[in-house]
Simulated scan of single mutants.
Amino acid sequence: MRAILAPLWNNAYLLMTLTCLFWAGNSVIGRAARDLVPPVGLAFWRWVLAFTLLIGVAWPYLKRDREILLKQWRWVVALGALGVGAFNTLLYSGLQYTTAINALLMQSAQPPLIMLMAFFLFRDRTGPVQIVGVLLSLVGVLVIVAGGDIDVLIHLRLNPGDAIILGAMLLWVLYSVLLRFRPPVHPLSFLAATFGIAILFITPFYVMELMAGRRIVPVAESFATIAYVGIFPSLLAYAFFNRGVELLGPGRAGVFLNLMPVFGSLLAIALLGERFTTAHAVGIGLIGIGLLLTRKA
């Protein structure tokens, strides 16, 4: 099994591509299930499921790495609260109100913001080819979400949900840059620790949501939603993203986030019967070229 998984674990481009596919599905499902699973409840049970599935295999590594984790507890708490707990709770909350196109536009801003924050905080160098790759990918995203119609962008209106997702996005940018300070422990130790921190962080907000009368509708779709977000965008995607940042650095890894609108559009076409247009083809092509330029940088 190790011989089979090793090539995947060392292939940053495949890891980041799968991460974006899983996270695109997370946004689509989070929006579709907004009337069945309240946002904080979805975030809470997502991490409870992921932590439950993970803790059995992670426990030996947690015991081995506990001294390092405790010594660097501030970074563990910060990364778990920001990038795991707060980000996802805000994302699901924003998806209660915002449109898909607004969410995709804001997500498309993450790669350049990651590069900018890495530069201003740590003076990370960004080459000209890398900058061109980011800009091409960003243009590709705009083509997709606008459907080739510039009027869509001109008449774009923001709502409270957009403000919430903007806050979530900025937290994710900070998380991506601060991953360089993750303790030098086994990946499973780090995942389990940050998932546990996220559960503790979300719990009081979940209690408030329950007290407000918002509860999960007990139907099969609700449980399927929690199962998906607990396994693919959580357990697998976070492990893949953390490894991708480790291999590529936050700037180059962040460029792959432009694949999320691509996968989101394709999922909408496959699951919702939307039409594949020329704008999709052009946008996907530009994003692909941008990723190739970043890879050569």
Rank of each mutant, 00 (worst) to 15 (best):
M1N: 03
W9L: 11
W9A: 07
W9R: 10
N10K: 01
A12W: 02
L15P: 00
L18F: 10
F22M: 14
V28A: 13
I29R: 12
A33C: 15
P38A: 06
P39Y: 15
L42C: 11
A43T: 03
F44T: 15
W45S: 10
R46N: 07
G56T: 08
P60H: 12
Y61I: 14
E67Y: 01
I68T: 14
L69P: 13
L82A: 11
L90F: 12
G94Y: 10
Q96S: 06
T98H: 03
T99C: 06
A103E: 03
S108C: 04
Q110S: 14
P112I: 13
L113H: 03
M115K: 04
L116G: 08
A118L: 05
D124Q: 09
R125V: 03
R125H: 05
T126C: 12
V129P: 13
G133T: 13
S137T: 11
V139Q: 06
V143G: 14
G147N: 01
D151L: 13
L153M: 11
L158H: 14
L158Y: 13
G161M: 13
D162C: 03
I165R: 12
I165D: 09
L166Y: 13
L170C: 15
V177Q: 04
R180I: 06
F181N: 04
P183A: 01
V185E: 07
H186T: 10
L188Q: 08
A192C: 05
T194C: 11
A198D: 07
T203L: 08
P204F: 00
M208A: 15
M211A: 05
A220R: 15
S222P: 09
A224H: 05
T225W: 08
I226H: 15
G230K: 07
G230T: 04
L236T: 10
A237G: 08
F241D: 08
N242Q: 06
N242H: 02
R243H: 01
R243T: 04
G264R: 10
G264F: 07
I269S: 02
G273K: 03
E274N: 00
R275K: 12
V282I: 08
I284P: 01
I284K: 00
G285E: 01
I287L: 02
I287G: 02
I289K: 01
K296N: 05
